[in-house]
Amino acid sequence: MSHIRLENIVKTFRIARRRPGLWGAFHGVLRREYRTIKALDRVSFELERGELVGYIGPNGAGKSTTVKVLSGILVPDSGRCEIDGRVPWRDRIANAANIGVVFGQRTQLWWDLPVIESFDLLRDIYRVGSGDYARARDELAALMDLEPLYDVPVRQLSLGQRMRCDLAAALLHAPSVLFLDEPTIGLDAVSKLAVRGFIKRLNRERGVTVVLTTHDMDDIEALCDRVMVIGHGRILSDSTLDDLRARVTRERRLIIDLLDEDQTIADPDVSFVSRSGNRIHLQFDPDRVQTAALISRITAKYAIKDLFVENPPIEEIISRLYDEHELR
């Protein structure tokens, strides 16, 4: 049985239309006009226990609405959804005890309290037994080096420290699902790596199912085998990262460092992408020309210092997918 199952979830919002100007505001008080938008339009997917899925899409595509439905905050208009056999919105409290949610932009810790007191309060809110709590807390603290932060009020933490504490806070009750909403936003490079490393371990070693929402494609690249793309409230793509890549573009990048800065490269099978100094970025289609053949042809013809082949950056793939579906 799958861990999380969504079937044809539909959610529409009614938004009051605002008229411009003072008269418009006055008019709005007397009579409101609404327009409806479909935030989720027959969204379906299934996740197995222990999967780590990237859930991406432009702002307003329906990512957070999905998370709100899954966490029982929002009741959808129609469709079915189960987590561990529970309907989240019908069984909000039982469901909430089984999931963890981290918002990168907002902390769930108490601003004025030292970290450890927030943890203690969460223990009581989630009714975690004191033995289980101490074990979970110490494990998390060891993994993310939290102990030095215990006595620091949350408002004094750096963003990276705060995120580590927030991750731990969401896991104290040992949830079987973790929803992460932009967990690396605003973090410095070192903290980003630490957070990613932790998420990966959590998923591999404890089998926690993770749904990761992010705009940082490096997160996706580093963590996710499976990627779901949502736009206009519909799932546009649900596949492995490699398949997504292959479907959207087969093109590869050929990056060449020339010995001579004035040289250019001309070949019928490659197209020019960009150039900086003596580094040239080219593009080719591996179905039209064999990579090995292309490389030997070029190295025979030009004076080359270094050369390598790459996949186009994931950002480009995603942005091409958005363009295809006329998003943004």
Partner: peptide, 14 residues
């Protein structure tokens, strides 16, 4: 407005 109410709904308490 700040989303803090949603956080309350995310917790297994009334």
């Amino acid at each position: 407005r700040t989303g803090e109410f949603d956080r309350m709904l995310l917790r297994p308490r009334s």
